[in-house]
Amino acid sequence: MYWGTMVLGAFKYLQDAQLGASDYRIFFYLCESMAFRDNIASVKQKMISEDLRMDKSNVSKSIAKLKELQFIVKTRNGFMINPHLFYVRFGERVHLRGF
């Protein structure tokens, strides 16, 4: 079983970053696409543009903003999500009270 978590401090960071709707869409797309072992989403900007039905120039602007704010970094095969914001674990059960 895999589970993902956002670091609590990330919520304040997300709130204060002044991201637009496109920036959030791309960031969450990358989070959803990332490999669990290394936080890397092996996607190209063209694929993001096609999957989200967004103009390539808008994708490029959002990617630049996300990199500038250190939400992501460019890798050889895509983008790595900052593990201080979001990470995924395998095999541990999460027990939630009241659920």
Rank of each mutant, 00 (worst) to 15 (best):
M1I: 00
Y2V: 02
Y2N: 03
W3L: 07
G4P: 10
G4V: 07
G4S: 13
T5Y: 14
T5H: 13
T5R: 15
M6K: 14
V7G: 08
V7F: 14
L8V: 06
G9C: 04
A10P: 02
F11D: 06
F11Q: 12
K12L: 04
K12C: 04
Y13E: 12
L14V: 04
D16T: 05
D16H: 07
Q18R: 12
L19Y: 06
G20C: 04
G20R: 10
A21G: 06
A21R: 10
A21V: 02
D23L: 02
D23I: 03
Y24N: 09
F27N: 06
F27I: 03
F27T: 05
F27V: 01
Y29A: 02
Y29R: 01
C31M: 13
S33T: 01
S33L: 01
S33A: 02
M34K: 15
D38H: 06
D38F: 04
D38N: 15
N39A: 07
I40H: 00
I40G: 00
A41M: 08
S42M: 02
S42A: 01
V43L: 00
V43C: 00
K44A: 02
Q45R: 11
K46M: 03
K46W: 02
K46D: 06
M47N: 13
M47L: 10
M47Y: 04
I48D: 02
I48S: 01
D51I: 03
D51L: 03
M54S: 12
M54G: 13
D55E: 14
K56P: 15
S57M: 11
N58E: 10
N58R: 12
N58W: 00
V59Q: 15
S60T: 04
K61I: 05
K61V: 04
I63G: 08
I63K: 09
I63L: 01
A64T: 09
A64G: 03
L66Y: 11
L66R: 13
L66W: 14
K67Y: 00
K67F: 00
E68I: 03
E68T: 08
E68P: 06
Q70A: 07
F71T: 10
I72K: 12
V73P: 11
K74D: 12
T75A: 06
R76S: 10
N77E: 11
G78Y: 01
G78I: 05
G78F: 05
G78C: 08
F79E: 13
F79M: 11
I81H: 15
I81A: 12
I81C: 09
N82M: 08
P83V: 04
P83L: 05
H84R: 03
L85D: 11
F86R: 12
F86Q: 11
F86I: 07
Y87M: 10
V88P: 13
R89S: 08
G91R: 12
G91V: 07
E92S: 03
R93F: 07
R93V: 06
V94C: 00
V94L: 01
V94F: 01
V94M: 01
H95M: 09
G98F: 08
G98V: 05
G98K: 09
F99R: 15
F99E: 15
